[in-house]
């Protein structure tokens, strides 16, 4: 893997080049925040019952400061790709670089994660959760409380600092998870269907908040979702996945400045883009539904495989 990564840093100079990838092309982006090159990933071994080819020869560049949505049918490997980007899985083949660093494991100083279920530690209060995240990351003790408070204020949870996660609603828990990620002050946020378990109204509000936050913070965000509306509303670009083994079928640009207003959702542009996405996805969703049922969440497989 080291060799491959080193090779890429040589092959990829800072100019746009086109990558041949299953007949489709994507522009390489100069000075990208994250580069994904020819990543394939499979769970289990060939011939085993739990063998799954999750991701097939995928390449993608994510520009600094953009919000990129990954969208696709269930089990298509979009979460797998996110985990590979963040160094939580080592891909079977291929390589990821963040800035100029090849990714070989978690990069807590560059990348913060937000997961679908709140990954808050249930035995700690919201505030303790903030502190603990920064402890893990290695933030000096003197700075932690201050940063925790600021992050909680940014998501409007400062009054709930002393609550336990179980005392909050799902939406508030995800806000808290967002605050914890923000307190880590990384340039990159990887969000794995963060609003997936929430009701429609809550996710709309959180989506608006996220758009505002993005326009302020200039963070690079990769956001996995299965909601067409959410993808169009939030993303600068939407990468559409094919059915399993997943790879990127097409990337659509949403040319609309942040912060986005709710009115955007009723505009003709929004509907055109949404319909375009639906057209791209529809066939893949049918394909994936006819595949084996019950896709497991990728990290569960991974955790069972190597913990």
């Amino acid at each position: 893997m080291d060799g491959a990564a080193a090779a890429f840093s040589v092959i990829l100079p800072d100019r746009a080049l086109r990558i041949e990838n299953l007949g489709m092309t994507q522009a390489a982006i100069p000075d990208a925040a994250i580069r994904v090159r020819n990543v394939s990933h499979q769970f289990g071994e060939v011939g085993e019952a739990r063998h799954v080819r999750a991701l097939l020869n995928t390449s993608l560049d994510i520009a600094r400061g953009e919000l990129l949505c990954l969208i696709g049918p269930s089990g298509c490997g979009k979460s797998t790709l996110l985990n590979v980007m963040g160094g939580l899985f080592t891909p079977t083949t291929g390589a990821v670089t963040v800035g100029t660093t090849p990714v070989h494991g978690p990069m807590p100083h560059d990348i913060a994660f937000i997961f679908q279920e709140s990954a808050l530690f249930p035995w700690n209060t919201i505030f303790e959760n903030m502190i603990l995240g920064m402890t893990f990351q290695g933030v000096p003790k003197s700075e932690r409380e201050d940063r925790a408070r600021r992050a909680l204020e940014a998501v409007g949870l400062d009054e709930f600092a002393a609550h336990y996660p179980s005392q909050l609603s799902g939406g508030m828990r995800q806000r808290a998870a967002l605050a914890r990620a923000l307190s880590l002050e990384t340039q990159i946020l990887l969000m794995d269907e963060p609003f997936g378990a929430l009701d429609e109204q809550t996710r709309m509000v959180l989506g608006e908040d996220l758009s505002v936050l993005l326009s302020r913070s200039k963070k690079t965000i990769v956001f996995v979702t299965h909601s067409l509306g959410e993808a169009v509303f939030l993303a600068d670009r939407v990468a559409v996945f094919s059915a399993r083994p997943g790879t990127i079928k097409e990337v659509i640009t949403v040319d609309e400045p942040h912060p986005r207003k709710p009115e955007f959702m009723t505009s003709a542009k929004f509907h055109r883009l949404r319909d375009q996405l639906y057209g791209l996805l529809h066939e893949e969703i049918r394909k994936s539904m006819s595949q084996s049922a019950k896709p497991k969440r990728a990290y569960e497989d991974q955790a069972k495989g190597d913990s």
Binding site: P106, F113, F121
Partner: peptide, 10 residues
Amino acid sequence: PILMVSARSM
């Protein structure tokens, strides 16, 4: 598993 993954990511 997500709690372990999350802690490792931080």
